[in-house]
Design a protein around this nucleic acid. Structure first.
Ligand SMILES: [Mn+2]
Ligand SMILES: [Mn+2]
Ligand SMILES: [Zn+2]
Ligand SMILES: [Zn+2]
Lengths: 166, 166
DNA sequence: GATGCTATTGCATCTTGATGCATTTGGCGA
DNA sequence: TCGCCAAATGCATCAAGATGCAATAGCATC
């Protein structure tokens, strides 16, 4: 993975990969990669659009979405889904990991692949199904929320648009 | 669960539950329940909107979405997410189950809770995290797709809008 | 059966994201 | 360096779904 830890400016790996496939190295793609390099943890596409806009207000959302798709196809990114179903990109997938998210407090944690290894092996054996661990998001309740009583047993983890009031 | 197998017309359980909470029994809600009763397996919200429209073209989408939210809060529905992140409702949650979905062929299967029980126990023990099995969707590759070679290692499971051309 | 309170509806509008298409432009070859 | 052509961008438009608000209508009470 070249995206991580590169001094913004030496995107030669990605650039060459694109060119070698007959794809193109554009200023837009360069900027998106710069933004990704400055990002840690999980980000949604729209957060990336926002960050691009901070650098260049002219940023076109669809260009960003399409570039993210491409980078994922090329293996530079992976995504999973938050409890609300929205895609979240793993910007620095040094190590493969799954995800845990608490339906009540909304916090989330990364999960070592070995934590899911029993499940992975069981499904492999019984069904020949091979789990995509990095796409995996397991929802539930964290310790703290379970201990802290008073709870709707399964509150809906819905999308929510924070309406931007001007 | 009253939703399953009821002759469309005797929604007394749901109706009484609503009334007892100071909520209301409206023709819209009645129709949505009728649609749900005629549905099996998993459905997305927009599919439910379509089915409602078949019965009453005047159906307002937001009314449907809000009713589905309500029914889930009351425990009459549950949802999980397809590989693309979209919500899919379990209309007849007689038995709790998780979900498997193949990123290549798109098919999906239900998973007995016991199949995930190792995982559930492991997370409970190591983190005190209690998994919401019915929300769980595990993506990966099914046997057939794994055997059948020639594959993009991890094709993106993206949303797709089938554009309705008139 | 009429009344009043408040839950719901319907509607307009917004957000995230996908997509078709015309225009622009990266980059290779001459 | 110039031109060409396919790849990308920008833009308009669409889809699914969320949300605020004013008008409507359940239903409990009288
Ligand atoms: Mn969810
Ligand atoms: Mn996905
Ligand atoms: Zn929590
Ligand atoms: Zn398959």
């Amino acid at each position: 993975m070249a995206v991580s830890g590169q001094p913004a400016g030496s995107w030669s790996e990605v650039r060459d990969e694109l060119r070698s496939r007959g794809l193109r190295w554009t200023p837009q793609r360069r900027m998106i990669l710069d933004v990704l390099a400055a990002t840690q943890g999980h980000v949604t596409s729209s957060e990336i659009v926002e960050r691009c806009r901070e650098r260049d207000p002219e940023t076109t959302p669809s260009t960003v979405y399409r570039t993210l798709d491409l980078l994922e196809e090329l293996g530079y990114l992976k995504h999973s889904h938050g409890a609300d179903g929205r895609e979240e990109f793993h910007v620095l997938p040094e190590t493969e990991h799954g995800h845990l998210t608490c339906e009540r407090c909304g916090r989330s944690w990364e999960m070592e692949p070995q934590e899911a290894s029993d499940l992975v092996r069981a499904l492999e054996r019984s069904r020949g199904f091979s789990v995509d661990v990095s796409h995996l998001t397991i929802a539930g309740q964290c310790t703290e929320c379970s201990t802290r009583s008073s709870a709707p047993s399964r509150p809906r983890c819905r999308l929510s648009f924070r309406v931007k009031r001007t």
